[in-house]
Design a protein around this nucleic acid. Sequence first.
DNA 1: GATGTAATTATGCAAGTGTATAATTGAGGA
DNA 2: TCCTCAATTATACACTTGCATAATTACATC
Lengths: 213, 213
Amino acid sequence: MSGERRKFRREGEERRRDALIVAALELIAEGGPGGATVRAIAERAGVTPGLIRHYFASKEDLTRAAYRAVMTALSGDNAAVLEAAPRDPLARLSAFVAAALRPPVVDPQRMGLWAGFIHQVRRDPAMAAIHAETYLGYRDLLEQLIAALPGMAPDRCRQHAIACNAIIDGLWLEGCALPSAFAGGELERIGLEAAGAVLGVVLTAPAIQDIAP
Amino acid sequence: MSGERRKFRREGEERRRDALIVAALELIAEGGPGGATVRAIAERAGVTPGLIRHYFASKEDLTRAAYRAVMTALSGDNAAVLEAAPRDPLARLSAFVAAALRPPVVDPQRMGLWAGFIHQVRRDPAMAAIHAETYLGYRDLLEQLIAALPGMAPDRCRQHAIACNAIIDGLWLEGCALPSAFAGGELERIGLEAAGAVLGVVLTAPAIQDIAP
DNA sequence: GATGTAATTATGCAAGTGTATAATTGAGGA
DNA sequence: TCCTCAATTATACACTTGCATAATTACATC
């Protein structure tokens, strides 16, 4: 008559870990770091709080895994466009910049996640290592795309990559923070024009078939 | 022999409120929103926790006041450079952009604060109102500086302001996040060059006497 | 079907959270 | 000097937090 013990199913370790990470990310995106309590994460993932400690040494450990998942997905979603992009360096850079400034890369939830992790990244060396591994890799990729442009002076690539990265970051932030403030494709156009001006080239929005062949 | 009651001094209301706000901001900058507990804020301000509720209706109320203080100071520190700037529109815009990309506007602690508030800004309408009041005002100021440039087409000012704002934001973020990654003045130079390229003008770093006459 | 074991739940705990309320005390005016 | 009142402290409370540990139960293997 008293509380019946809750029924459950055994899942593979990987699926449970993923489910817990996803739940944590959802909660952080919605309510900030403070909203992602152990109990809330467990409830969202459909398990009891104790299970978290079975798959992660501590909540901090789960947080690190979640941060890695976010940054990997963010860089990956942007870089994925290069796989289907043409060989022309101008077109490749254009496709990359444009992809960074539209969904799914531009996404209010993702900005919330990114901001939610900042403090921990600066305090926890393990988080800082994940940051360096993902973020600086992103900028290096951008620098490679710039270096491939015809007639690009090698000694200016670094500065150009920094400036273009800043344009992308800034527009990404504004697009995430105020999605309704920009007409469809406006953000991409501004980004392409600004980056093109910085680099002294003309970057044009890729045709549809170049994006999704 | 038991605990003697703690001695204290009476302060003016304004000074106590300021002290509490400053304490809260320091703690948020250091340890994120989670670090700014009522007890920690009180201790940092040299007071007991109960006093916070005497000056603020709730912790949320203190948080809002702190956010307003941050954003006001941020915009103010940047706009302050215009008071001593020359009349030439190009020089004024240059001075404004450069000021946004060096201390005290560029400051890791301030980025930490900014990030720490993001979630609350998106959840609490009162915080959102403070955001609109300060942040959009900043972009309007930038748009005015751009509109004053000779030969600037009025219908392009908005797009240019968005792009330049993004450049400033992005570089500001990178400068705050990785202060050691940029040589002295490098950020300002990149920002001036990028913004100049976007606007089709030449923005030059203001001479020293233009900054501090 | 019996059995072992690892995945999962249940329970409990010490510390910390924001807030309410009562008890003190500093400081200015009579 | 005394008195008053607001500024400040002290205490308490209900709730939440992360974590540890013990009790169960689903599932694979025999």
